[in-house]
Amino acid sequence: MDPAAIIAALLALGGAVAAVSLRNLIHCALCLVLTFFSVAALFLGLGAEFVSFAQVMVYVGAIAILIVFASLMTRDPGTDPARAHEPRAIRPWPLGLGIAGAVTGVLLACVGSSRLLPDVATPATAPSVRELGQELMTRYVVALEVVGLLLTAAMIGAVVLAVREPRRPDQEVGR
């Protein structure tokens, strides 16, 4: 096996373990970024350029920033090292394990029941970006549009939740 792939896999695993076990929330987020990068490196090693770069762009450039911003905006005792060891209201371990188990189960079920599995095993060449685009715009166009619609709806929802600007100055007086 490729040594680079082993290193990337170890880094991904290490980052993931650190992300769930570290006390400091920001450190957790940064370890998660390390995992994202390592997964992107794994994709690159497998010849999936486009997926790898999309992984970095979406997960590092957007998701990680979102996590970091959320942890900056909220006043959670987890970000305060002095109060990191206080007992919490909910017990995190059973909850986390439950969610992780549920996600793994769903993913395994999806992969197991997928019709694509036999096809994937024998790719002649890695699909080019052009082919990927063609497939997305023809065969999977409905799925793509649905995802886009979902994201747009989520964004509008977020804007509606976030906007609390008074419409006119005279309405502000009573506040």
């Binding site: 940064l30 770069f53 999309a54 970095v56 590092v60 450039g61 920033i65 970091v68 080019s128 970006v129």
Partner: peptide, 25 residues
């Protein structure tokens, strides 16, 4: 000469945001 060179450029560019955050925090 990467096939997705432009995407690579934007992807690595987004990593600087993490650096800025790390410096600030």
């Amino acid at each position: 000469d990467l096939e997705a060179g432009l995407l690579f450029f934007f992807a690595v560019g987004s990593a600087t945001e993490i650096a800025v955050f790390m410096a600030g925090w």
